[in-house]
């Protein structure tokens, strides 16, 4: 018997301490305020949140630490912070500020032992490895730097290596599906999920409630992440949770 709920995870893009995407919910004053949005999602029943910092300048990254502290004080659900973690020190700053997990993408590709060190220092539960991959000539090619640079690695083999090095979760974004709102890469998700003994978060392609259901049933994902459908309130989280429940998928309600 297993009642572990499938997780719904809104992702917020942050630049210079502000939310990039998002509309004004009726009762929210400032859709650009990540703390207010985080509270809103938390109240709606989001299971976790991911903050992706896309701030370019190093100088403005100090804003991220201040933001993490505010978010940690405001919400009572776990949250992950990604973007720009390249060494143990970056991770420690975020941990001290109150983040529950960090997500590492490019730095894991450029310096794989970083994952071993992070896991040893802070525990695997703290380390999410985010992977962007695109299907090319029948192979899922891994990319870095926000999907701009191919790295000559294949998704399955790379994800397994990250698991062995101590990653606690894999967050996989299909670049072919991301932004299409045509559904998640379910066939590949299920193959990847079966090859991993750690949880897999599906990302890229959410457009309808059925897409989430499919990611959990066909895709065998443990969690599903999305941005636009939540930011623009296309799919309110309580409506999504009810739909999943009606379809026999275990969710926290």
């Amino acid at each position: 018997m297993n009642n572990l709920a499938k997780r719904i995870i809104p992702c917020l893009d942050i630049r210079d301490g502000r939310t990039v995407k998002g509309i004004n919910f009726v009762d929210i004053r400032d859709a650009g305020d990540p703390v207010e949005l985080a509270q809103r999602y938390s109240e709606q029943g989001a299971d976790e949140l991911v903050f992706l910092d896309i701030t370019a300048s190093h100088e403005k990254r100090k804003l991220l630490k201040a933001l993490v502290e505010k978010v940690a004080a405001a919400i009572s659900i776990p949250f992950t912070v990604g973007g720009g973690v390249t060494e143990l020190k970056d991770a420690e700053v975020l941990l001290t500020a109150g983040t529950d997990k960090i997500s590492v993408n490019s730095a894991a590709i450029l310096n794989p032992p970083l994952i071993d060190e992070l896991a040893r220092q802070f525990g695997s539960q703290f380390v999410v490895v985010a992977i962007d991959a695109r299907l090319e000539n029948g192979l899922w090619q891994v990319y870095r730097n926000g999907g701009r640079i191919p790295v000559g690695r294949e998704l399955f083999e790379y994800a397994r290596e990250m698991q062995e090095r101590g990653a606690g979760e894999i967050l996989w974004t299909s670049m072919n599906h991301d932004g299409t709102q045509n559904g998640f890469a379910n066939e590949t998700l299920s193959q990847l999920s079966r090859q991993l003994s750690i949880p897999l978060i599906a990302s890229g392609g959410a457009g309808t409630k059925q897409h989430f259901a499919d990611a959990f049933t066909l895709g065998e994902a443990d969690a599903a992440l999305a941005a636009s459908v939540f930011h623009y309130d296309t799919i309110p989280i309580p409506v999504l949770k009810d739909f999943l429940k009606e379809n026999g998928i275990p969710v926290r309600s």
Binding site: A5, E169, S197, I198, P199, D222
Partner: peptide
Amino acid sequence: DLKIPHMGWNS
């Protein structure tokens, strides 16, 4: 025969 760590919301 389940994913470890047991991570997430359970009842």
